[in-house]
Amino acid sequence: MSTRTIYLALAVLLALWVVVPIFLIATLAFSDRASVFAWPKGILPQHFSLETISFFFGVAGVGKAIGNSLIVAGLTLLFAVLLGAPAGYALARYRFAGADAYRILILLTRAFPLAILAIPLAVRFINLGLYDTPLGVALVHTALALPFAVLVTSSLFLGIPRELEEAAWTLGCNRIQAFLKVVLPLALPGLAATAIFAFVISWNEVFAATLLTLRERTLPAFLLTALNDSPLPFRFAGGFFLIVPALVFIFVIRRYLFTLWGIANR
């Protein structure tokens, strides 16, 4: 067997590994109760129905959890872009002492296991009154999303020639005007991708959200605690709702993710 066929087989296997569960979850989330419990299950959805989905939304707490998730992810998006983009701009445009060390340091923040940080964080958050609030969770999620936001935006700004800004300066702009009139319009698609990526990181994060909340659960945290004592249809519908936004967003911004990985590998 040639190496090419081995690679191909491995790729197919890997793809199936990822796709099959997603496919099963998706089809069963849109089937009626009977087919969710049926065994063996058919490959294709048997009876299309919104019964499972509507049951899921009917469960007490789901609506609130989705709302919390949206708030937390929205705040994370906002913080990550507002803090990450200036840092990325500085890394791209200015030569300052320790720039390279700073770049690595940013990545190192991801090397700290959240499990170690969680307990001190919970204690501190209780002291500060941030415990069990969407803002508290959003702060932790911002810490998780920020390294990527900084590195992606820095590569984004590096891709915009410095001369464009300089030309704007010679034509009468101050630094801020040049940024707003020239750099921002060109960076906007990439900034949007960064924002969406921060949103997805927050939307999918479960560990910190579980530890730092009791009543104000985000959707993943709510599902994690609710899943074990829930009926099967609820699990499928919940799983579906966890996966879908991430899949859609990552599909939309995949081009920018490649540049992110290119930078993160350096």
Binding site: P161, E163, L164, E166, A167, A168, V182, P185, L186
Partner: peptide
């Protein structure tokens, strides 16, 4: 400028 620096947008 050498690379013209014409605003692409």
């Amino acid at each position: 400028f050498q690379n013209y620096a014409v605003f692409p947008h």
